[in-house]
Amino acid sequence: MEKGIKFREAKEEDIESIVELVIRLKRLNEEFDALLKVREDIVEQTKLYIKNSLKSDNSFIVVAEYNKKIVGILKAEVRERLFYSPTKEGFISEFYIMPEFRRKGLGKDLLKYSIEKLKDKGAEIVTAEFPTQNKIATDFYAKQGFRSVISIHARYID
């Protein structure tokens, strides 16, 4: 792992930094599809979302810290698969690394660290959600052994 970077679970006082990184992620997503345009109250929504997530027993947020600064986040939760087996899924919903810390293997390490945690919490498979057009994410997950299983298709209702 990159020197001086450590992973740990997020705490209450990290909320502000996490919110900032999640919003960066959503703004990145915005580039991929018109239906991913971020809403105006994104800041409040994200704060609420992160606060709730920290309270929940099924989910966790791992932060990558460098010089006391949060430079990467991964948010995941364990959820029940109602119709399929294996029945326990570790679902990664947010995953973002600051630009200057990319391409150093940090993402791979953060993913590995988080998958261990998901496993401890009983997950048998791991899934991730990201925009279809995000080729960088597609390539990254493919390299880590993921494949596309289900896709979400969308259009406007006239």
Partner: peptide, 13 residues
């Protein structure tokens, strides 16, 4: 600078 808000947009474009 690497923390500027439009960095990801630049990365793509």
């Amino acid at each position: 600078h690497p923390e500027r808000e439009d960095m990801d947009k630049l990365m793509l474009n």
